[in-house]
């Protein structure tokens, strides 16, 4: 009986160290969005399947004519989720600061642990949804001085990422590719440079500084690639919400995140041009060409 029990591998949640972002600690390194689902019911099931303990939400006008309608809050287990409000839809630093404060007020009312942090987005353009670096930096500074734990959405520009870290962002979140584009990590070299710059003490960084790849992730292999590059987490929404089967995709994304995390820390083999045999040459009974 003992022998059988010893063959059971440890489950991944025992192997994945919690992700620390400022004073926030996350068990899952996959953070998922709550937008674009066909129904709140489907959203709830997909969130559960994803294993995420942090989900993002947006701040929007209350619908005054339909105030008795369903609220997303009724479908989120607020006791075990940390809600991360975003500033999506903001194109100026001042609007992002306004929306961040409204989000904090809402989460304070709900008594959720997420009051006090924000996913900062300051966008430059509605069509590309690419971040406006100047507005992002300005808003980051103001929110940090207002006491927010700022998780900062940005492009994959390494210098900009370092500027945001130096401005006090608790985490920098470079986009893999444009929001909702499903193009994955479009420039792995840039993400590697971001990671190097932010984590290397020789570059004023620290290995513990959390970097989360946010946006553009379409497939489980995209998640794994981001984690294998050395990201501390991945944030995605559309890749699950718009999959044909969001619940199955949420499962897959969860496994992919754990796989990439564990793989990155296990130490990969070097790439070689030529093969190296896995079975010994010693004792072969065959004729080897050229020998």
């Amino acid at each position: 009986m003992d022998a059988i029990e010893q063959t059971v591998p440890p489950s991944t949640h025992q192997l994945v160290i919690p992700l620390q972002i400022g004073r926030f600690s996350l068990r899952s390194r996959l953070i998922v969005g709550t937008g674009k689902y066909g129904s709140y019911q489907l959203m709830g099931e997909a969130l559960t399947a994803s294993g995420a303990d942090c989900v993002t939400v947006a701040v929007r006008r209350e619908r005054l004519l339909d105030a008795q309608g369903q609220s997303i809050m009724d479908f989120l287990p607020l006791d075990r989720l940390t809600i991360l409000p975003n500033t999506a839809g903001c194109f100026t630093a001042s609007d992002a600061v306004r929306v961040a404060r409204l989000g904090r007020e809402l989460l304070e009312q709900l008594g959720n642990a997420g009051a006090g942090w924000v996913k900062l987005e300051v966008l430059g353009d509605k069509k590309t949804l690419l971040p406006d670096p100047v507005g992002t930096l300005e808003a980051c500074r103001e929110l940090v001085s207002d006491g927010f734990t700022v998780l900062c959405y940005t492009s994959d520009d390494p210098i900009m990422a370092a500027r945001l870290r130096d401005a006090g962002a608790a985490s920098v979140m470079p986009a893999g590719s444009p929001i909702g584009s499903g193009r994955g990590v479009a420039n792995p070299s840039a993400i590697s440079l971001v990671l190097q710059l932010l984590k290397d003490s020789a570059h004023g960084g620290s290995p513990e500084y959390p970097v989360i790849v946010d946006a553009g992730v379409g497939t489980p292999s995209d998640v794994t690639q981001a984690m294998e590059l050395g990201a501390d987490g991945v944030l995605l929404n559309t890749g699950i919400a718009h999959a044909r089967d969001p619940i199955a995709m949420a499962h897959a994304m969860r496994l992919a995140c754990d796989a990439g995390y564990l793989g990155a820390r296990a130490g990969r083999i070097p790439r070689r041009l030529y093969a190296t045999a896995s079975s010994p040459w010693e004792g072969v009974i065959t004729h080897i060409p050229g020998e």
């Binding site: 937008g35 989460l107 946006a215 929404n237 559309t238």
Partner: peptide, 9 residues
Amino acid sequence: EIVTLVGGG
């Protein structure tokens, strides 16, 4: 402005 939380990414 009266706002609430909605689904988002």
